[in-house]
């Protein structure tokens, strides 16, 4: 068992581009679900709209990258409006249903054959990252000791990505300590009470949905730019559920919850994956004999153990890493 590479690779994932993507997506969900109590089960749709708009602007229509970014953010806001207008006056469950459906619709539309000229069908789009990469200050691989190493492109995505994460956290922090954030939290607790105090609940929910969706768009940009390609499979339903997992691990309604959650989530999932694949690798004298587990079974073990870890977390620390147990206990009354 090669523990150095085991830890090295896990850390690499834990602070790498993937963790950034999920941190951003979860920061958006944190605004919507953590603070406002809105159940958005279609964060993948917001990511897809952001990522695809940017990609299609550059590679399909030959427009500027920056215009693509602005349009991506704008269109996610429009998506939020479209989903919010019919549902935000209703009970919370309706938004959940509509967003799940929206995520599937968006994924089917961008992958459809009839729109292949625009979005490239199942193959998706490439060649939209030149502008982004032209600003890359790194020219070599970035290595930290022998433990971790990133390509120059990944390093650039990480620099930009973590800066974005930081800015989003800062913005969240500024917002949730303000009277605006207080209204969001109040809506989560009791909409009617907030209405009776003269606040336009509908408008605040819409603002929350739009803001969280735009954070999702940032995650969508990162997904596309880190692999210099975009395709429908990057926005499957499990993306949203992983983002929720990330949020719950870190602790909902905590500014840094999504960030810590994402780091832990990706560390664990990589660690478990590598551990079981090494432990069952037949060429290196397997730690776990094939009679118990074969190499093909091992690849599934990470999800079993991740599920187990989640269950333990929910039982012993239902409030997440950062959450306040006392606050959670109030629900019980």
């Amino acid at each position: 068992m090669d523990f150095v590479s085991l830890f090295g690779d896990s850390i690499q994932q834990a602070i790498g581009p993937t963790a950034i993507v999920y941190a951003l997506a979860a920061i958006g969900l944190n605004i919507q679900f953590g603070y406002t109590g809105l159940l958005n089960f279609g964060q993948a749709a917001f990511m897809a709209v952001g990522g695809y708009t940017m990609a299609a602007f550059v590679s399909t229509w030959g427009l500027s990258f920056w215009l693509g970014i602005v349009a991506g953010l704008g269109l996610t806001a429009v998506l939020a409006l479209l989903l919010g207008i019919p549902t935000l006056r209703l009970r919370a469950d309706y938004l959940a249903i509509v967003t799940i459906a929206a995520a599937e619709i968006v994924r089917q539309v961008v992958g459809s054959v009839s729109l292949k000229d625009w979005f490239g069908g199942q193959d998706g789009l490439q060649e939209f990252s030149d502008t982004f990469r032209s600003y890359n200050p790194f020219s070599d691989r970035i290595e930290v000791g022998t433990l971790v190493a990133w390509s120059a492109n990944d390093a650039w995505v990480m620099l930009v990505g973590w800066t974005l994460v930081l800015l989003c956290c800062l913005m969240t922090w500024l917002l949730v300590r303000s009277p605006w954030g207080r209204v969001l939290k109040s809506i989560r607790e009791d909409e009617d009470a907030v209405r009776s105090l003269g606040k336009n609940v509908y408008s605040y929910k819409m603002q929350s949905l739009m803001l969280g969706g735009m954070f999702g768009a940032l995650a969508g940009f990162c997904v596309a730019l880190r692999s210099a390609a975009i395709n429908p499979s990057m926005f499957a339903t499990d993306v949203t559920f992983f983002a929720y997992t990330v949020l719950l691990i870190g602790g909902a309604a905590r500014v840094l919850g999504p960030v810590v959650g994402s780091i832990i989530f990706w560390f664990l999932i990589t660690f478990l994956d590598l551990f079981f694949s090494q432990a069952t690798n037949p060429s290196s004298g397997p730690l776990i004999p094939p009679s118990i587990m074969t190499e093909t079974q091992a690849s599934l073990m990470r999800f079993i153990f991740l599920g187990l870890a989640l269950m333990l977390l929910m039982i012993f620390r239902p409030q997440g890493i950062f959450g306040d147990r006392k606050e959670l206990a109030i629900d019980a009354r």
């Binding site: 009277p179 207080r182 939290k185 109040s186 009791d190 907030v194 606050e327």
Partner: peptide, 25 residues
């Protein structure tokens, strides 16, 4: 009664004030 359970008593009171400038995004 509809109190905002996970907000402090003081925060509950502050929500009550109308036309707050800090309540716009």
């Amino acid at each position: 009664t509809k109190v905002l359970a996970k907000l402090t008593v003081l925060e509950n009171m502050r929500v009550g004030a109308t036309r707050q400038r800090g309540e716009s995004f």
